[in-house]
Amino acid sequence: MSLAVQRLSREFRSPVTTGLIAGVLALAIFGVVRGGTFILVDSLVTGAIWALVAAGLALTFGVMGVPNFAQGEFFMVGTLSGYLVYTALSGVQGRPYVPFVTILMALVVGFVLGALVDLAVFSQMRRRIREGWVMNTFVVTVGISVVMINAHQLIWGTDYKGIVAYFDGPPIHVLGVSVALDRVFAISVAAVSIAGLWWLLSYSRIGRAIRAVSQDEPGALMVGINVGRMRTLTFAISSGLAALAGATLLFQFPSFPFVGVKPLYVAWTVVILAGLGNVGGAVVAGFIIALLEANTGFFIGSAWEDVVPFALIVLILAVRPTGLFGRAVRSVWEQ
């Protein structure tokens, strides 16, 4: 805990960061006063899921130096496997455990697929590539994304494969806003997963080893960590989280080849805002982006939801090139 305090106090020392945080708070208050409390509730629900997708992206970059352009496609894999599992279980639908089985299966599928991709692609590249690792892997993930999108189209077609809802009970009321049960489910899953990830990275032996690899690769090797296995595990975890998010949001994002595009954009916005490789920051930034989107959608029009955050991020970047939480990740991103 003292570690978190140390870290926080260091990050808040910068006036720019403090200013940005104040700005976000102002935005939240403005949204609630002029729009309504639903802006806050909406931001919490979507923010939690974006945080999940983005945390994986940040982890992959921090540990492996891979800026994953295919992260959205693992979200797509999650929606697809969620759909396939859920419809396969149609005989027992209505049982309360079915949604949980569904998202767990999606998590497993994403995890295994991620591990396979790392073994087939990145492990091979590591043996060969001597320079320009970050940009080369970025281009490779572009290729992976193209393959996954079109493999989906090839095998399952382009039509929407979705469900109406996981739960059909009456909505619950929070702060005067009615929230559908599926959204409550989504935020709970996200909260549990983020807490799990946080625990894993902070306190478990494996998680410490993953952090060790991200902080000092030769050092990790020197204490006996199988660095290659940690990288595979990292990519698998990150893919698994994205797939989990996809399956959880199946009621809102029916599966089709391009369903990953929006989560990809959002995850990247979040990760850039937080600073590449900063997992904790990504969680916070996930909520900020969701808040920004909710405000834009309500006050300017939902068509601008995609435009305003992008433009704003570039401006923020121009002021603070290492992101909101200014962790110097130079060694990794300067190639």
Binding site: P67, V134, M135, F138, Y265, W268, T269, I272, L276, D306, V307, F310, A311, I313, V314, L317, P321, W333, E334, Q335
Partner: peptide, 14 residues
């Protein structure tokens, strides 16, 4: 590196 690529990407998306 990657920051420039992503910044250009976001400008393009905007």
């Amino acid at each position: 590196g990657i920051y420039a690529a992503v910044a250009a990407w976001f400008l393009g998306l905007a």
